[in-house]
Amino acid sequence: MRRQLLSGLGLLLAMTVLTGLAYPLAMTGLSQAAFHDRANGSLLTRGGAVIGSARLGQAFTRPEYFQPRPSAAGDGYDALASGASNLGPGSEKLLDEVAQRVATYRRANGLGPADPVPVDAVTASGSGLDPDISVANARIQAVRVAAQRDMPVDAVLRLVDSHTQSRSLGVLGEKTVNVLQLNLALDGSR
């Protein structure tokens, strides 16, 4: 048994060097050389300052910006507390929250009391950092954003279209709109 333990320790140390140090360090070196921006978190800058990551959603509350999905990460979009609400499908808390979000969304976007609201706009995402919203959600918000910014709705819708990511390979996943990049483009078009 003692010999086995020593062999085990030897192998563990060898593998720690190989898979725990050499492998991640080499991968970081290669990634930094070949995909510098992506390996560093796809950071976005404005006026020289980093204002976020294209991959991570961030909180928007002002009506002149497109708003992301509800978030269960910390107080909302806290990237040090990623995660979902984990509320069950029949949870009272979930149903209360959704009812409230539906009412708020209708009010903010001038919808009638019976108008359906896109489900992604009233449910929290899996990561709490979802950078995207659905196209349906973006199109409804476009009307409000255009009014707030005194822009023609068509111009805002065109921006939504140009920021719509289609499905990967045409069939994988879903069509989405990246909120942070869309809002940056809106500010840029002023």
Partner: peptide, 14 residues
Amino acid sequence: ATQPGGNMEGKESR
């Protein structure tokens, strides 16, 4: 055509 629909609580849009 413009939204995935379904049970989106706890799911990512993409």
